[in-house]
Amino acid sequence: MTGTTTTTPFTVRVTVRIYEIDAQGHLNNAVYHQYGDHARWACLRAAGISADDLRATGTGPVTLESTIRYHRELRAGDEVDVTCAFDWGDGKTFGIRQELRRADGVLAAEIGSRAGLLDLERRRLVPDPAGRWRALADRPALLGL
């Protein structure tokens, strides 16, 4: 894919809570997706885009595909840094790469996603999501723009 890629990904830290643990004693697989969502929204807020801003424009982000590759276990009490880096192209969709690293730097998981920006009235993807994000953001560099 051609396009712009962020060089230093946005990062947010989360702590694994006891109620997020599965029967094997490690982080439930669905929670990895929740951590990815949390980091993406934190990145948008840091760039100056709120959910209210998006609703006001009649648009909203939509995840089209999300894949997790697990490397190491996460357990209750682990502090985890979740990154968020965007890969922009020329089409209606864009990529998001995320890493989940324990505070000691060990890679626990990677999330790869395809996403778009949905026109909420027409229920179709907007043709230039990068342009829309750039116009809304106070700090578009955090989005790789």
Rank of each mutant, 00 (worst) to 15 (best):
L145S: 04
T67K: 14
D138K: 11
G58P: 03
E121W: 07
A76C: 15
I96W: 08
I21N: 05
V31Q: 05
D78T: 05
V14E: 14
D90H: 12
D87Q: 13
G48M: 03
L44W: 03
A30S: 12
T5E: 11
T63A: 09
T4H: 10
L107A: 00
E121S: 06
Y19I: 14
P61V: 12
A76H: 05
G89W: 03
A56N: 07
R114M: 13
T67P: 04
W88L: 10
A109T: 05
R75C: 10
D52V: 12
L118G: 07
N28Q: 13
D119I: 01
R134H: 09
I21G: 06
A42F: 09
T63L: 09
V82Y: 02
G48D: 06
R97H: 14
N28W: 12
R114H: 08
L27R: 09
N29W: 09
I18Q: 14
G60V: 04
I21Y: 01
A56G: 11
F10N: 01
I49T: 03
A85N: 02
E121V: 14
G60K: 06
I21C: 02
E110Y: 00
I49Q: 01
R13W: 05
T83E: 01
D53P: 04
I96K: 01
G131N: 11
E20D: 08
W41F: 15
G95M: 08
T59P: 02
A141H: 13
R101N: 06
L74T: 13
P127G: 03
L27Y: 02
L125W: 01
T93S: 10
